[in-house]
Simulated assay, not measured.
Amino acid sequence: MFDIVYLLEMTGIVAFAISGMLVARAKNMDPVGVFTIGFITAMGGGTLRDLILDNHPVYWIQHQELPMLILVLAIVFSYWQRAGRLPTSKIVLPDAIGLGVFSILGAQLALDLGHSWFIASLLGVMTGTFGGALRDTLCNEVPSIFRKDQIYASISFAGCWVYFLCQWLLENEALALTIGLLFIVIVRMAAVRFDIRLQRDPTQG
């Protein structure tokens, strides 16, 4: 199980870091800015989770290879000319993957520490959304979690409950993790593709 969780952590960190770096390049930031935005996007949610749960040292301090990997990615994105021409719409897939991975793993850690499903789901949402919210705020954008034209945090919340139910019904942790993750990624991508919202502006047709 450790290997699966670590692989998922790596996947989520790379996905979120790339989403942050794409936005940073679109904002014409220098290499320091690209690294900073990528790092905060990838590590912000997990750091908040660990601080709330009093889980020390925080994850990226325990695993120094992860910030080193983000640094390498930042150098590549800073000096790879094509990256600067990629539209910000390209962040949707890596952002969805990061949202799914960190939501489920955040909820899993809370369960492992003895918290209820409800508290674990809230911590999963915090883990999955906080890094992206910091990214958008620092890049002078309204965070996705607060936009009326986005379904974001609610997908994370629902995905955590899909994970809990699968874990309870199937009694297979790896399968439950996979189903919860895929649910969040697929629903998030479908929501963007088909413009699915929780609430629409009544002034719009």
Rank of each mutant, 00 (worst) to 15 (best):
V58G: 07
I61G: 04
L66H: 08
L66M: 12
I70N: 07
V72W: 07
L73S: 06
A74W: 06
Q81T: 06
A83W: 09
A83T: 12
L86K: 06
P87A: 07
I91Q: 05
A96Y: 01
A96D: 01
G98E: 05
V101I: 15
F102V: 01
I104M: 03
G106K: 02
A107I: 09
L109Y: 06
A110I: 08
D112E: 13
H115I: 05
W117P: 05
I119A: 14
S121P: 08
L122I: 15
V125D: 03
M126V: 14
T127K: 01
G131D: 04
L138I: 14
N140P: 00
V142G: 10
R147S: 11
K148D: 14
K148S: 15
I151P: 02
A153P: 04
A158C: 14
G159C: 08
F164N: 04
W168N: 13
L170Y: 06
E173R: 13
L175R: 07
T178H: 07
T178K: 08
T178C: 10
L181M: 12
L182Y: 00
L182W: 02
F183C: 02
I186H: 00
R188I: 11
M189Y: 07
A190W: 15
V192P: 03
R193C: 06
R193F: 05
I196K: 08
R197G: 10
